[in-house]
Amino acid sequence: MTCTDFRLLAERRAAGFPLKARQEKALERHLAECSTCAAVARFEHNLAAAVREFPAVTPPADFADMVLAQLPDPVAVPEPSLREYWWNLTLGVLAAGAASWALWQKAPSWIPWLTGEKERTQIADILFNAYMSMGEVSLPTMSVVFLALIGLTAWGASALVAGER
């Protein structure tokens, strides 16, 4: 470690950030040997103390009540409209569908589990088996339906949460 590193450690220690035991030991050893860094550490210590001990106004006992008395009516949380939900859902499903279709068509090499029969992971196998069992339905269509179901579930959950509020 260089003097620069030790000065940073001294700064952090003065500010109250805990050092690892190993760093603390190394710093102490260095400060005992290097008078310049020891002076920096001393300055850091004094500076931190001066900042902490800077005279501050203390809040009056009834400060919270004083603020509460001035607060406007309860803040209203804007509820997302039903229209907004459907719009987001539609966009989400369209985007997810397009992404699935593009992935299936291109199967880029940077996604190893989509590139070859042997490398397929469990997720890919599940999708493939589901596709086989659905006969005429293409995988992109199935993916869209699948994602739409997830989207609808998420929408239902968010509507429930919004209802709770």
Partner: peptide
């Protein structure tokens, strides 16, 4: 504080009474 170009503290900055001046 780690810039090598920074002038290093004078010995005067080590003294305990420096705190008042700092404030």
């Amino acid at each position: 504080f780690a810039d090598e170009e920074t002038p290093l503290p004078d010995a005067a900055f080590e003294a305990d009474d420096v705190r008042q001046g700092l404030e």
